[in-house]
Amino acid sequence: MTTKKFMYVNRRAPYGTIYAWEALEVVLIGAAFEQDVSMAFVDDGVFQLLKGQDTSGIDMKNFSPTYSALGDYEVTKIYVEKESLEERGLTLDDLQHLVWEDEDEDWAEKDSIRLVSRAELAEVFAGQDVMFNF
């Protein structure tokens, strides 16, 4: 099986709809099949990565800790769109710090999140084989 470049585009906020959690599950499944997986967070999708989520008051599963597992699944390219953050009054500091561990460099921690402009992200999209939109 040849490896394909899969891009999962997240444009929805978590909890209000099921899209965010569904996307995360599909990404984890896709990664288990050893594809070259990237994720992008644009529009309300950037809200998925906000720190400090606590769902105890709304009786729903808090899946924000699961994003930290993406590194274990070798999902190491997580693009966050700058314009979407700015429009919402957010900076990277408001988001979880996601890392992956490089086995070849004695498990050195490396940043997974890449802050990109809309134009830069469009270039990244152009280089993908398959796009999944949530």
């Binding site: 984890l28 990664a31 288990a32 050893e34 599963k61 808090n62 899946f63 800790p65 699961t66 930290s68 597992a69 274990d72 699944y73 086995e103 498990w107």
Partner: peptide, 18 residues
């Protein structure tokens, strides 16, 4: 407890190794 998911076998194998 930490990640709110059960790991895939490949991920489990690697994590156990570590």
């Amino acid at each position: 407890e930490e990640y709110q998911i059960a790991p895939a076998v490949r991920v489990l194998t690697k994590a156990v190794g570590k």
